[in-house]
Simulated scan of single mutants.
Amino acid sequence: MNEFYYTPNPHVVHELHTWNFDLLNNTLTFTTDNGVFSKRTVDFGSKTLVESVNFDKIPDGNVLDLGCGYGPMAIALAKHHSDRTFEMVDVNNLALELAVKNAEQNHVSNVKIHNSNVYENVTDKFAAIITNPPVRAGKDVVDGMISGAVDHLLPNGTLTVVLQKKQGAPSAKKLMQSLFGNCEIIKKNKGYYILESVFNG
């Protein structure tokens, strides 16, 4: 059974839920379903990441939400930063359908939403990449999401990752340090680490 949220077509009994959530001073409406990550609320890691990203230090350009799920991070940020375009990708087609719906019902048009298994269908370079990686998909997937960012960032672009300490944040920090030559913990909250590297390309 492909019921995991990090598979292309999870087999689920559909059970749509629509609910509101406050992010970045906006009340957003999200519709979710079985077969997607954190279907009942915006998870604490995503909320913490969204509130931690400092757009004042990000160069001009678009932003990639890698593994966007039903879209809470990119939609919240796109609503707040209407001058940028947010590309949203995920391997889960059900999640992407919901992301399209959620962008529409929150009147967010500065997004591009499409399927990609990690960076497979990502061709552009970005001012920032944000990700709440699917830890349950395994360390190889998480490491691939981090290491692939090197080829998809503009000079001085940032990679911002949220991980729990117990789910690999320390090893991810080492990997980011080795790839980028820098990695800062920009926030720690309830065991969640927000890690950020700058691409000095």
Rank of each mutant, 00 (worst) to 15 (best):
D124S: 14
G138Q: 13
F30S: 06
T18K: 15
K173N: 10
L28M: 03
N25E: 15
T41R: 14
L28D: 01
G168V: 11
N200Y: 07
E15V: 03
N110H: 12
H17D: 02
D65P: 05
K101I: 13
E97H: 07
P72G: 01
N102K: 06
S46A: 14
P133C: 08
E120V: 10
L64Y: 04
N117S: 14
M176D: 01
Y70W: 15
D143G: 00
D140P: 00
A149H: 02
N110G: 13
A128W: 10
N117G: 08
L96H: 11
G157S: 15
E3C: 01
V36T: 08
L28I: 02
R84K: 10
N156A: 00
L23G: 02
K187S: 14
D143N: 13
K79C: 04
Q167K: 11
T158A: 02
L16N: 03
L16S: 00
T18G: 12
K187M: 07
H107V: 08
A76G: 14
D43M: 12
T27I: 11
Y193N: 15
S52P: 02
F55N: 11
K125Q: 14
N26C: 05
G138V: 06
L175C: 09
V135A: 08
D65S: 07
I185F: 02
P133L: 06
T18V: 13
M145S: 05
H80D: 06
P59C: 03
H107Q: 10
S52R: 03
G35E: 09
F30G: 10
I129N: 06
S82N: 01
L98S: 00
S109G: 01
I113H: 08
T41D: 15
A76D: 09
K165P: 01
